[in-house]
């Protein structure tokens, strides 16, 4: 019987990681579609979100079924509760990828406002955070998860920096406003992706150490680490 329980946990893990890989792919493609101005790629990502949504519902049902059947305790309980929260974050990130694509398609109506330099950097950082948070989940590595939390500040700073830059474009010429606002939306979405990655990382820390570190300042977390 215990064997079956382990198998259920493994199956759950597999589906979560599958969902994670789909979301990683969606965000990567969304940013590519923006930078390369590729309409078909963007539309593909928008269509693909349905799979992520389905997985979200299915995994949640499986988690609840697992809780009902096994009434787990200890690490298994923490795993399943973490799973339920992680998939919510993943699903939101999938939606954000769709949002980025929608804005990118809208941006196609006009010429490119400016060369994209910081946005790909920001996208790269957010994607790395998502990837690292999922890696930390796989490896049950709390230190790696804490590193993800720390990386969030970098993305936040980039976001405000890009916003200031876009503000200048808007002040220079009102014709820039619609494009600049859309780009600003996109950076906000990327910043949100990083936030969700941070959430996942925090849940991984909870799963590994059994300690809640959400809503704590970075310093406290780090002092906790040592």
């Amino acid at each position: 019987m215990a064997h079956q329980k382990e198998q259920d946990i493994e199956a759950l893990k597999e589906r979560i990681l599958k969902m994670g890989s789909l979301v990683e792919d969606a965000i990567r493609k969304a940013v590519k579609a923006l930078v390369e101005r590729d309409r078909d790629l963007a539309l593909g990502v928008i269509d693909g979100d349905a799979i992520v949504n389905t997985l979200d519902v299915e995994i949640e049902e499986e988690c609840i079924r697992f809780l009902a059947i096994w009434q787990p305790s200890g690490s298994n309980l923490r795993f399943v509760t973490t799973a339920i929260k992680i998939i919510t974050d993943l699903e939101r990130m999938g939606d954000l990828a769709v949002d980025i694509c929608e804005r990118s398609v809208e941006l196609l109506d006009e010429p490119q406002l400016k060369p994209y330099i910081d946005i790909p950097r920001m996208a790269e950082a957010s994607q790395k955070m998502l990837k690292d948070s999922l890696d930390a989940f796989v490896a049950r590595d709390a230190d790696k998860a804490l590193a993800v939390c720390a990386a969030d500040d970098f993305v936040d700073n980039l976001n405000s920096q890009i916003f200031n830059e876009l503000l200048i474009y808007m002040l220079q010429d009102p014709k820039n406003i619609s494009r600049a606002v859309r780009l600003s939306y996109i950076t906000k979405y990327l910043e949100r992706v990083a936030d969700h990655a941070t959430n996942i990382a925090e849940m991984v820390v909870y799963m590994v150490r059994g300690k809640v570190i959400r809503h704590m300042a970075c310093e406290i977390r780090n002092s906790d680490k040592t």
Binding site: K13, L17, K18, G20, S21, E24, V138, A139
Partner: peptide, 19 residues
Amino acid sequence: DLPLTGRQFIEVVRDRHFL
């Protein structure tokens, strides 16, 4: 140095084409 044995494929290769 990623540990391999005892892991699921997906833990080692998180790639949608592979999946």
